[in-house]
Amino acid sequence: MVVRSWRHIKERYNLIGVRCKNCGTVYFPSREICPKCRRKTDFEDIKLSGRGKVYTYSVVHVAPKDFEKQAPYVIAIIELEEGVKITGQVVDCKPDEVYIGMPVEVVFRRIKEDGDDGVITYGYKFRPVEN
């Protein structure tokens, strides 16, 4: 559990994905092969802007065990400026304030903790862009 989350720290903290130089498609999380280009796949790392819009969302009232205390909360699919869609929690936002198309930006938050004596997992969430 510790090792599994440690391996993803770099990409989860900084939203590092990959871009296929052959066709321009961006992927997050990163993968080995571009399904469009197959053997012609030519990946480079790309740091995503973290800015995007709510593509769709769901309000979670009955949460999995690690997230019970946060319920109700908003889980959304965010379409980032780079065109890639990623799933994340929307924070600093009441469930009745979220809407499709809402501009959001990335924030750094606690994702979960392994009890009160275990490792704390950090990563990305999103918040409304207010202005």
Partner: peptide, 16 residues
Amino acid sequence: PSLDEDTATIAVEASR
């Protein structure tokens, strides 16, 4: 701070 904020998350936001 909300439940998912702590000194580390505050420090990261300020540093960014």
